[in-house]
Write a protein that binds this DNA or RNA. Structure first.
Length: 152
DNA sequence: GCCAACGTTGGC
DNA sequence: GCCAACGTTGGC
């Protein structure tokens, strides 16, 4: 089993939104970055655990845990001309973008803030805290996962 | 709202 | 293949 971290702007989609979805499952679509695409398409498996990270908000940080409920499959939002994330270069025969389904696991008792994570030498290699990082999906090692959870 | 850091696009 | 222009991300 692997561990991941996925960012979302809470104004667009928050951990609370996920918890209120039917079955508490949500397709994680609209990702238009090749590195993130490759991870969803090739590496994320059912049962993998994922930190839910709130970005671009008053208190950026990890707010909850979710699980991969469905491995990578073509992101249909790329085929829909009315969708914000429509991409005319993606098609059914050769889909360019992929998504996974995620399922709510739990909300943390508090937000583990980006500020706090940056202060920990143990997390120096975590992509999230590295300068200039903009990846919206990133791997988390088992050691990093356990360390972060122990901060809760 | 600002802006640094990236990623992508497209002319050449 | 280079690189300037442009668009986006996301902390602050």
């Amino acid at each position: 089993m692997k561990y991941w971290l996925m960012k979302s702007e809470p104004d667009t989609f928050s951990i609370t939104d996920l918890a209120q979805r039917p079955g508490q499952i949500e397709p994680w679509d609209g990702v238009r970055n090749y590195q993130a695409r490759n991870m969803m398409r090739d590496d994320m498996q059912v049962g993998d655990l994922v930190f839910f990270y709130h970005s671009n908000c008053a208190e950026p940080g990890i707010v909850g845990i979710m699980a991969v409920a469905k491995a990578g499959y073509p992101d249909g939002s790329a085929f829909d001309p009315d969708d914000k994330h429509f991409d005319p270069k993606s098609n059914l025969e050769q889909p360019r973008w992929f998504r996974v389904d995620v399922q709510y696991v739990r909300t943390l008792s508090r937000t583990i803030t980006l500020h706090e994570l940056k202060l920990k030498p143990e997390l120096a290699d975590l992509a999230l805290v590295r300068r200039g990082n903009r990846l919206s999906i990133m791997p988390v090692s088992a050691a990093q996962w356990q360390f972060i959870l122990a901060l809760e």
